[in-house]
Amino acid sequence: MPYTQGSFEGLPEAARQRLTEMRGTDGKRGLFTSDLSVNEFLLCQEANFDPVGLVMGSSIYHIGFQMQKMFQSQELQVLTQAMYEARELAMTRMEEEADVLGADGIVGVRLEVNRYAWGAEMAEFMAIGTAIKHRGGGKYRTVDNRPFTSDLSGQDFWTLLKAGYQPLSLVMGACVYHVAQQGMLQSMKTVGKNVEMPNFTQALYDARELALSRMQAEAERVGAAGIVGAQVQEKSHGWDSHVIEYFAVGTAVKPIEGAPPVAEPTMTLSLND
């Protein structure tokens, strides 16, 4: 879904009204909402960012059907495409809300997928985060003037800035893969033996690599120097036991030009466990 700055598409009337009120008038902002913890909130403030509002995008999506060959490992492209597109829809709506609020970025982004027993072919995709704005009018928006997105917590965001880097975009890569089932003869050969299951190993490798390479390609497209907090999640969203989604997600970052040198860290021993 193409991102249109200032677009209200899909937002209910109440949302437009709420966002306009929160944006405030004559430079005076309205009451802000945020899912940041107190510590995250204070650290964002210390980094010269003010929270401007809790932003959210969602999409209830019908996931199509794809035939799979029982004895062949393969990517299920229809399903991969669905997982990508629905997440993009939710992300874009969340970014549009942040844009309406005049935010420079969104931190603490969570991407959730909920499947419901009553609608096996459907899933609800949600993107939630806190929109923030730099107090000094710093240039933190992306090159195409979108608010940056990041799944980093307030603490990690503060530390990243202190390390001389800024977030660019939440980058992700998905791959839904069907792992081939073993044939009868193959199963017989392994009875009573300790052996590697090469077809399973290879399939999981391939799926993970596809997800990771897609995430990296997204980071390259936004001109990132690296990805922090990258994680690869392995999920089966109610599909059959041989179908699995690898979902790689992280925050693409780049160095801040002219950033001060990194301060000497203080070593501490916590009083807590």
């Binding site: 109440a14 949302a15 709420r18 969602s58 999409s59 209830i60 199509g64 794809q66 229809v78």
Partner: peptide, 23 residues
Amino acid sequence: FWANQEITELTQGPYTAREIASN
């Protein structure tokens, strides 16, 4: 049934509920 597509009307439900709750 085979196609990937958003169910736009149903998507609007949680959105509106969230707006009312948020207000």
